[in-house]
Nucleic acid binder design. Structure first.
Length: 270
DNA sequence: AAAGTTGGCAACCGCGAGTCA
DNA sequence: GTGACTCGCGGTTGCCAACTT
């Protein structure tokens, strides 16, 4: 027991019995039973009356992140990943807000995803994960790749209509119209101002991007769109590793399949 | 096979906002 | 107005399994 908890023992005599660390099955059951009969909220008293030797905070966290019935377990789908990238570019580290658009996913899970996967990419590119450059990279390379994965994963009978493009999650249907992600009408590219300005629009149109995977590589984002992105980035220092592509071990195998490939990366570095 | 390293994730912590007496 | 309390959020930590050497 640390000195902090010791210091508060006078006020809360029973605090010495407070448990910490991983939850046991018994505790989980107690919490589930109590919440299912009394509902959520009033976490401190809930902890007390449910007979849990945990703080209210701890109970709330356990419930929201793990025990709640509609929690979705398992890997994030490409669609969910895409949504996270998109919404993060719009709202930043507002994890709970982002989580609201991914039913069954918790803010903690999304935060962990961002820290372990996305920030890793940024580190490997030696750019800041919140930087415009990285945002460009995500949009130019990563998103189209996720689109491809979504395309591959979608059932063959699924029609290409935008409304049913991503049937796996209701979230996408909430993210409808505008063109925060649409190609720039002038040059048909994803100009960088879209990223930081249009993105602050009311919502996100993923289908606009989604419907393009059939475009030949020469005409796809990073060839049509990238030049403008690149122009925009010129004059800025792009601190990418001073090494040949062949030497790069930026991507594990998994990342190769989910993130950009070597050719794309090479273009980005160029 | 063992030791060391890395990655993923659950849980904790501190802080600020909201509520209420 | 204010202090106590609760809640929710974002950042951080620590554990453990998987992977590498």
């Amino acid at each position: 027991m640390n000195s902090n908890s010791k210091s508060s023992m006078n006020m809360y005599e029973c605090e010495s019995e407070l448990r910490r660390g991983p939850w046991t099955l018994e505790e989980d059951n107690l919490l589930i039973q109590y919440v299912s009969s009394h509902g959520e909220g009033r976490w401190n008293s809930l902890a007390k009356f449910a007979g849990l030797k945990r703080t209210g905070k701890s109970c709330r966290l356990r419930w929201l992140n793990y025990l709640k019935p509609d929690i979705k377990r398992g890997n994030l789908t490409p669609h969910e990943q895409l949504l996270i990238l998109e919404l993060h570019s719009k709202w930043g580290n507002r994890w709970s807000k982002i989580a609201q658009h991914l039913p069954g996913r918790t803010d903690n899970e999304i935060k962990n995803y961002w820290r372990t996967r996305v920030q890793k990419q940024a580190r490997q590119l030696k750019v800041d994960s919140n930087s415009k450059k990285f945002l460009e990279a995500i949009r130019t390379f990563w998103m189209p790749r996720l689109m491809e994965k979504m395309e591959q994963n979608s059932p063959p009978m699924s029609p290409p209509s935008s409304s049913s493009a991503v049937p796996s999650s209701p979230a996408i249907s909430q993210l409808a119209p505008p063109d925060s992600l649409c190609p720039n009408p002038v040059n048909n590219s994803y100009s960088s101002n879209i990223l930081l300005e249009q993105i602050s629009g009311p919502s996100v149109n993923l289908t606009a991007v989604k419907n393009q995977p059939e475009i030949p590589v020469e005409e796809s984002y990073y060839n049509v769109g990238f030049p403008s992105c690149y122009d925009d980035m010129q004059g800025q220092e792009i601190l990418l590793p001073d090494c040949h592509v062949a030497d790069i071990d930026w991507f594990g195998e998994d990342l190769c399949s989910t993130f950009w490939n070597t050719d794309e990366l090479w273009q980005f570095r160029k």
